[in-house]
Design a protein around this nucleic acid. Structure first.
Length: 317
RNA sequence: GCCGGGGUAGCUCAGAGGUAGAGCGCGGCCCUGAAAAGGCCGGCGUCGGCGGUUCGAUUCCGUCCCCCGGCA
């Protein structure tokens, strides 16, 4: 068994400056960035998902971006498998993994593992969705209550997405999902995570979200969306549900003017940031910094904290 | 200056003699293969100011201030 090696995790809400800090850390300790973001997985959806442009990568390798085509469905389990591959490569080459985490579930799937459970069953999902739209979301919940009362008690009656997953698992596994979840989970071995959290003041974060939306539009976001539609990416492709892409598609089809679309994007982003904050607050053993990751003062503090765990910087830049 | 209309939550507004609600916003939360998804909870308030009537006024009366129209 190899001794545990460090792994850096940088987490925080969208627009908190995770990417900039990650590149700094990677440059200091000879690391490579590993993205943990469910949207940057998709190819061709670049501007709105805030992928790091090559110039800002400053020669640092970025992993787990552009893994899937827009019409594919990517999952937390798939993320875990791909991340483990990347980690073993980095370990072999003696490079420090620096995760930028916007998607809390994916991080949890990697660090704590997922219970061994059946994967998606598209046909069953489709049937259940149809049932939900014809007979109402509660009908799905009633079905679940018969298959798995414990899960039904835990899942809200109108939370169709969670109820469908619970039914899917229970049916395929032949026992209630609540039982399946009791199985041991394969925790990440051989790495000791060091977690840095970015938590800018709320007002400043919201201001930055507003400005970034404008900057993304100025950078050609609308043209990107127009191009995706033109090249035939189907409207029901997963990434078209992401924040901004749905609103800009509505704008292109003439339903709303651009200003209204931009306002809706900003609002959706604020809500998303709030949900991320709620999730990350429960993450254990995080060293929190109350500012932005591209602020030199915050970077200095984070790097000093990391220094106590990683030792002095391997490369002096 | 005169005549209307109006000042109630962050915004738009409803309401009624017994200290107030809706939508949006905002805040809090949940989460095991769609997670930028999906779901749950919360009113956060000098009812423009000051007097008066009343057991009780945000509601009725007076007055002042402010906003929006129209006429000057």
């Amino acid at each position: 068994m190899n001794p545990a090696v460090p792994l850096v995790v940088i987490l925080g809400p969208t627009a908190a400056g995770k990417s900039a800090l990650a590149v700094e850390v990677a440059l200091r300790w000879g690391g490579e960035v590993v993205c943990c973001d469910s949207t940057q997985i998709y190819r061709h959806f670049d501007i709105g998902t805030a992928k790091v442009p090559p110039a800002e990568q400053r020669g640092v390798a970025h992993h787990l971006v552009d893994l899937a085509e827009p019409q594919e469905v990517f999952t937390a389990g798939e993320y875990r498998r791909r991340a483990l591959e990347v980690l073993s490569g980095l370990r072999r080459r003696g490079r420090l993994p620096v995760f930028t985490v916007g998607t809390g579930l994916y991080l949890r799937a990697l660090l704590e593992g997922l219970a061994e459970a059946p994967g998606r069953a598209e046909e069953l999902r489709e049937r259940l969705r149809r049932r939900a739209s014809v007979r109402g979301p509660e009908s799905i919940h009633r079905l679940l209550a018969r298959l798995d009362p414990a899960s039904a008690a835990r899942i809200a009656p109108r939370d169709t997405a969670k109820a469908i997953r619970a039914i899917e698992v229970s049916v395929q596994a032949g026992l209630p999902m609540s039982e399946v979840l009791r199985r041991p989970r394969p925790r990440l071995e051989g790495f000791s995570p060091v977690k840095i959290g970015l938590m800018p003041p709320r007002a400043a974060l919201y201001e930055r979200i507003e400005r970034r939306t404008g900057a993304m539009l100025a950078a050609g976001w609308l043209e990107e969306v127009r191009g995706l539609v033109a090249r035939g990416v189907p409207p029901d492709a997963k990434p078209f549900q992401f924040i901004g892409y749905s609103q800009l598609r509505a704008h292109l089809s003439g339903v709303v003017d651009l200003a209204a679309a931009a306002g809706a994007i900003q609002q959706a982003t604020r809500r998303y940031a709030k949900r991320q904050i709620t999730w990350f607050r429960r993450e254990p053993e995080v060293q929190w910094f109350e500012g932005f990751g591209d602020d030199p003062v915050i970077q200095e503090g984070a790097i000093a904290t990391l220094g106590t765990r990683l030792g002095p910087a391997a490369t002096g830049t």
